[in-house]
Amino acid sequence: MGARRIPPKTQKPVRQWPQWSSPGWLNRRLLGALVLFGGLGSLLGWGGWELAQPDTLPIRAVQVKGEFRYLDQAELHATLGGPASGGFFNVDVRAVKQAAESLPWVDRASVRRIWPDTLRVTVVEQVPMARWRRADGSMALVNVRGELFATAGPEALAQLPLFHAPDGAAETVAARYQRLSAPLAVLGLSVRELSFNQRRAWRLRLDNGVQLLLGRGGGEMVLERFVTAWPLALAARSEAIERVDLRYTNGFAVRWKPGAGPGEQAG
């Protein structure tokens, strides 16, 4: 058998990519894109600068929404005047909100832009729960969260309960007031004064003038003895009672007004 000759392999030609010695077309496109985007950027920058100017779409009206009993609306509008000045887009709504909430009778506020030239400020007024007598004798008001928020001014607020306790205890007193008021309300009674001293001994005075000494615990369990005994033994002679001492473990003692009863009577 003769040897078979294998023909030599032929190499595939290497593909040659076109070469441009001077890519002018690419340079022109890049230059055009840069000019276009540069123009758009300048236009947007100018538009943003123009909108940020106070005299562009200036705020012309400030609407105040809310239900008010004590808040001075003229004072509120005057307070909002400075922060609310400016343009529709650049007015600082946070500053407007903070200005509103800086007033003692404002509990919280929210601010919205109304196209094209109005701010709407919605205000929630503080709800006074009681008066607070400070250590120096000055008066303030307490809201339902136990926060002091204003000096006691309007005469109508003189009908609110009076709290007095060491400074910094307003939240504690407010919470205790709400817990004690509920069982007393069932008897048709309400708290006119509530206090505790440095020894944390609680005392309250009812709307009928009767004082209750609750002691250092001063909780609902102590008051429960009074709530139970009141309709059975005390209500009929309420006008003659000066105070009821509930600091005893299992009972109470009644002090009658001078000339109205037999002195101390254990319950």
Rank of each mutant, 00 (worst) to 15 (best):
V91N: 01
S102H: 08
G209Y: 04
L160G: 01
V62D: 03
R120P: 07
L119I: 06
D92E: 01
R200Q: 14
L246I: 01
R192T: 13
W17K: 15
G32W: 14
G209P: 02
G38I: 08
F68S: 14
S238W: 13
A165N: 01
R179W: 08
N90L: 04
W49C: 03
I241Q: 08
V222F: 05
D72L: 11
L44A: 11
V222T: 15
P231C: 08
Q53S: 05
F37W: 15
H77F: 12
Q63F: 08
A169V: 04
Y177V: 03
R247A: 01
H77D: 10
S42P: 04
P23M: 02
R247Q: 03
G81I: 05
Y70I: 12
L184A: 13
A140Q: 13
W49F: 05
G209C: 10
Q159T: 12
G263S: 09
P58L: 00
E239G: 13
R247Y: 02
G261H: 07
R134F: 06
G217F: 06
M221H: 06
F68M: 10
L119W: 06
R28W: 15
L71E: 08
R176P: 01
G219C: 07
A170G: 10
P183W: 01
T10L: 12
S181K: 08
A182Q: 15
L30Y: 14
L40K: 03
Q211M: 14
V191G: 03
A185W: 01
A253T: 10
A229S: 11
D55T: 12
L184Q: 02
Q16C: 05
F149Q: 09
L214G: 02
G48V: 11
Y177N: 09
E220F: 02
T249S: 13
N90P: 08
Q73M: 15
T151K: 03
E171L: 05
A3H: 07
A233D: 12
L141Y: 01
A229Y: 09
A175V: 04
R203K: 11
F89E: 05
Y177T: 07
A201H: 12
R5F: 09
V111D: 04
M1A: 11
L40T: 09
E242N: 03
N250W: 08
V173I: 12
L80N: 02
E75H: 10
I59W: 09
A52S: 11
A175Y: 02
A240C: 10
F149Y: 03
A78D: 12
V91P: 02
V127S: 11
G32T: 14
G48Q: 11
V144I: 06
L51E: 05
I6D: 10
F226D: 00
L157K: 03
P54H: 06
D167L: 08
G218W: 10
W230F: 14
F37V: 15
W25V: 15
P258R: 04
V210F: 01
G24H: 14
L31K: 13
R134S: 02
A158C: 03
G47P: 04
A201D: 14
T172L: 13
L40R: 10
R108P: 03
A201W: 04
A175R: 08
A165D: 03
R176C: 06
